[in-house]
Amino acid sequence: MTTFEIRGLRADVIISEDERKEILKGVDLTINSGETHAIMGPNGSGKSTLAYAVAGHPRYEITEGEVLLDGENVLEMEVDERARAGLFLAMQYPIEVPGVSMSNFLRSAVTAVRGEAPKLRAFSKELQEAMKAMAFDSSFAARGVNEGFSGGEKKRHEILQLELLKPKVAILDETDSGLDVDALKIVSEGINRAKEANGMGVMLITHYTRILNYVKPDFVHVFAGGRVAESGGPELAETLEAEGYERFVKVGA
């Protein structure tokens, strides 16, 4: 049983050396293992900032608050330590790392997170199966990480990593954006498999309700003005679908 708690989190985006802007204005959220929390909200409300700040992205700085994973303060950990502690961020815009092959990258990540190098043959089989499940041709293994990947391929690669790394808590930042229906199904099935396999808690950040037909949320939160503005059950998503975010945009502004 894992508990992931965000308490009173405030964070700035660093625009330049002497310019910064506060984006997160006191976020509170608790996710237990097995739970899926959808975070929905208008563009610019700070959803992605929340994801990046928790993961330790260098362009964001946390100014106040705590992020606890089973009581351990994640914010005191290096970026790689957070991942090894069981936190995973699927990025909205996954980063291209030229010249580092996907297979080499995945083996290094799996080795680091599991704490020991997997047996070569076993890992090769595991990788092949995971790639197949995410509809990757095996030739991708030799390509540079996300290098020249389409938007959909990048998203599928994020979920492929999710399945290999088996985190305790996954933050999925608009993993559904830019996907066609087929890709959305593949990605959703990957997320659901990872949930079932290890009781992962999920923070599912999305702008649209579409993915919620495939990945069922237990809770829905509206994010506006840099904080959680309203929380509810799955029915809240339906209200948002019908009414839009106008009500919250005003609150946020």
Binding site: A55, G56, H57, P58, E78, V79, D80, R82, A83, R84, L89, M91, P94, I95, V97, P98, G99, V100, N104, F105, S108, A109, A112, V113, G144, V145, Q161, L165
Partner: peptide
């Protein structure tokens, strides 16, 4: 950041990027 966010320690991430 991307490599580290997957658990790869900083010095190894550096090595991978340089080799890449």
């Amino acid at each position: 950041f991307y490599l580290q966010s997957r658990g790869i320690p900083a010095d190894e991430a550096r090595r991978l990027v340089i080799r890449g």
